[in-house]
Amino acid sequence: MTTSPASGTRADDADDADEADDCTVAVAARATDLTKVYGQGETRVVALDGVSITFRKGEFTAIMGPSGSGKSTLMHCMAGLDAVTAGSARLGDTELSVLKDKQLTRLRRDKVGFVFQAFNLLPTLTAAENITLPMDIAGRKPDRLWLEKVIETVGLAGRLSHRPAQLSGGQQQRVAVARALATRPEIIFADEPTGNLDSQSSAEILGFLRNSVREMGQTVVMVTHDPVAASYADRVVFLADGRIVDELESPTAEAVLERIRRFSTGSSHG
């Protein structure tokens, strides 16, 4: 449970969140009895089976679990990318399950940032244009000072006019992180952000994400299956078969690995 030392920089955001669960810390997103079912009849798959979880503001949460555990589904539902079958998914004080596509799109644009495994940059745009794309979509002028700070933080100052094809994988993902940070979203969802990167680039990207939480007070939720990546988080949530099976605060890579090992043996017994 780390409270951001730099929370003052985003005080205006924190003020709205009065529905504090833990009395002291505001909630960025919350799932309550979240259920997601795919298909029907024989092909019916329960991806999420009554998941309840709270993502606190200014916290870096990692979601782990084996393939098919529902970790990506949880993230997609919380990010307003996928509709929920039952239960509630709230982002700030907005209930996502009742929103229409258009409202969800607006919500993602204004309140959510994304970092994908495959970078997902537009090859026709320069790095700078990719970073400001969400603002362009929203038709807003970017906050110059903030933008410069973000660009400086991710170390892209010399590469702003480059196209994605002229950048390395690590650099491309830095652009993606900058894009996510640029709008100062309420929450950033990162889906295996280091899955396509070498270890050095991975460390850099994870460092940026952690620093954004520590220094800028950003809220980050990251899906990963890499214990080392998870160790950058403030807390790790373990999913299996659509349920939350464990949680670990201030994890280390070893501790995470240890937990995973325990599940696999545990589940093999069960």
């Binding site: 990010a79 990318l81 596509d101 258009k102 799109t105 607006r106 993602r108 644009r109 204004d110 940032g113 994304f114 994908f116 495959a118 997902n120 537009l122 090859p123 794309l133 969400p134 979509i137 929203a138 894009r179």
Partner: peptide
Amino acid sequence: RREIGMLRAIGLERGR
């Protein structure tokens, strides 16, 4: 399609 998916994810409406 991936680019379009990304644009939709980061907030471009269907209409646009």
